[in-house]
Amino acid sequence: MRKIIVQEFVTIDGFAAGQQDELDFMPQAFSTGTKNSIENNQLQFIENIDTMILGRNTYRMFEAYWPNSTEPIAPGLNALARYVVSETLEQAPWGNLEPASVIKKNTDKEISKLKSQAGKDIVIWGSLALAQSLFNSDVIDEYQFIVCPAILSSGRKLFTDDRKLLKLNLLETKTFDDGCVLLRYSR
């Protein structure tokens, strides 16, 4: 069975976005110049997935950038099957490429259906509200946190205060050239 992987960039103090959803704590430029770069990690990661699921806001950011990007990661990212979770969107175009499918309701059930299909793993990128809505379900199999060397002190947390205890098992740690650290955990 495929795994559902939540991958989030976060600050040392646990924020995944600023107060106005800004992401300026994330690395602004990626480099494939070294083996130990975030972009090389992401290029390898994309080889192991074939589907991405995004919330509406992250979809809008991705769709505005990735279909026309010339970054090395763009061809692999644009080749993924795409799903957008939104109760308001009727369609989800992706530049000149095949549009994303829209999941309007029964999110847990629809994602579980995707999970049971043949294929590679599935990633949920960004999409804080979506990730938070799935934390207490059994849908998510793995969490990947890319911890950036920054402190925001305020903003949007990945984990809200009303969540139950979630114990995780460490799978891997990896330090990147820019000071970011990947922490991989399974449920």
Score class of each variant (00 low, 15 high):
Tyr83Asp: 10
Ile151Phe: 06
Ile124Arg: 03
Val85Asp: 12
Ser133Ala: 14
Phe145Met: 04
Pro99Glu: 00
Leu168Met: 15
Gly95Tyr: 06
Leu97Ala: 14
Leu114Glu: 14
Trp125Pro: 10
Asp108Trp: 03
Ser86Glu: 04
Asn106Arg: 05
Lys115Thr: 11
Val139Tyr: 04
Phe145Gly: 00
Asp138Ser: 13
Ile111Cys: 03
Glu87Pro: 09
Ile111Thr: 09
Thr160Phe: 02
Asn136Gln: 14
Lys120Gln: 04
Leu114Ile: 13
Trp125Val: 12
Ser101Gln: 14
Ala74Val: 12
Asn136Leu: 07
Pro149Cys: 09
Glu110Cys: 08
Ile124His: 01
Ser154Pro: 05
Thr70Val: 06
Ser154Lys: 13
Asp138Lys: 07
Arg163Lys: 13
Leu80Ala: 12
Ala74Cys: 13
Leu166His: 10
Ser127Ala: 08
Lys109Tyr: 10
Lys164Gly: 07
Leu114Arg: 13
Asn78Ile: 08
Ala92Ser: 06
Ser101Val: 12
Thr160Leu: 06
Lys113Pro: 02
Lys164Phe: 03
Gln91Met: 08
Ser127Phe: 04
Leu170Tyr: 03
Tyr143Met: 04
Ser153Leu: 11
Ile111Ser: 04
Ala92Lys: 00
Ser153Pro: 03
Tyr83Pro: 14
Ala79Cys: 08
Lys104Gly: 08
Ser101Pro: 07
Thr70Ala: 15
Gly95Val: 08
Lys157Asn: 01
Gln144Ser: 01
Val123Leu: 06
Ser112Met: 14
Lys115Gly: 03
Ala74Pro: 04
Leu165His: 04
Pro93Trp: 07
Ala118Cys: 10
Ala118Tyr: 07
Asn169Pro: 07
Lys164Trp: 01
Ser112Asn: 15
Tyr83Met: 02
Gly119Ile: 01
Ala81Trp: 03
Arg163Leu: 11
Gly126Thr: 00
Lys157Leu: 13
Val123Gly: 01
Asn96Cys: 11
